[in-house]
Amino acid sequence: MSNVARLHHVLLISQDINKALTGLDSAIAKAIDAAKAAGLPQGFVVSLLHGYAQQQTSIMVER
């Protein structure tokens, strides 16, 4: 996903967080590529990612 611009927080983030974010981004990209190669419809990939985003948003709002 090298063509995606990453927005940075105003405050500096630690190298550990940056490393974790880069690893997460890479793992998600690899999983999406593997799913597409296996023939999973793109709409299902999008809906799955959207569902996880909704769930995490709900958790953040509840705290």
Rank of each mutant, 00 (worst) to 15 (best):
M1L: 12
M1C: 10
S2F: 14
N3M: 03
N3Y: 05
N3V: 06
V4H: 01
V4W: 03
V4E: 03
A5W: 09
A5N: 07
A5H: 04
R6M: 08
R6V: 06
R6K: 11
L7F: 10
L7H: 07
H8S: 14
H8W: 15
H8I: 15
H8L: 13
H9E: 15
H9T: 10
H9A: 08
V10D: 12
V10Q: 09
V10M: 05
L11R: 13
L11D: 11
L12H: 15
L12V: 13
L12I: 10
I13T: 15
I13H: 13
S14G: 01
S14V: 01
S14Q: 01
Q15V: 13
Q15A: 10
D16P: 13
D16V: 06
D16S: 07
D16H: 08
I17Q: 08
I17W: 09
I17H: 09
I17V: 10
N18A: 04
N18C: 06
N18Q: 08
N18H: 05
K19V: 06
K19Q: 07
K19L: 09
A20N: 15
L21M: 12
L21W: 06
T22S: 15
T22P: 15
G23I: 03
G23S: 12
L24A: 11
L24N: 14
L24V: 11
L24D: 14
D25W: 02
D25P: 06
S26M: 12
A27W: 03
A27T: 07
A27F: 07
I28G: 02
I28Y: 01
K30Q: 14
K30Y: 08
A31Q: 09
A31M: 06
A31D: 08
I32A: 05
I32P: 00
I32V: 07
D33M: 13
D33F: 14
D33N: 11
A34W: 07
A34M: 09
A35M: 05
A35G: 04
A37H: 08
A38W: 02
A38R: 04
G39A: 08
G39R: 07
G39C: 10
L40N: 04
L40V: 08
L40W: 01
L40M: 04
L40A: 06
L40K: 02
P41W: 00
P41T: 09
P41F: 01
P41I: 03
Q42F: 07
Q42D: 12
Q42W: 10
G43F: 00
G43H: 03
F44P: 00
F44S: 02
F44Y: 02
V45L: 00
V46E: 02
V46L: 02
V46I: 08
V46P: 02
S47D: 10
L49R: 02
L49E: 03
L49D: 01
H50I: 11
H50A: 15
H50E: 15
H50G: 12
G51Q: 03
G51F: 05
G51W: 05
G51V: 05
Y52D: 04
Y52L: 07
A53F: 09
Q54P: 11
Q54H: 14
Q55R: 12
Q55P: 13
Q55K: 08
T57H: 14
T57Y: 15
S58N: 04
I59N: 02
I59M: 00
I59T: 00
I59D: 01
V61L: 03
E62Q: 07
R63E: 02
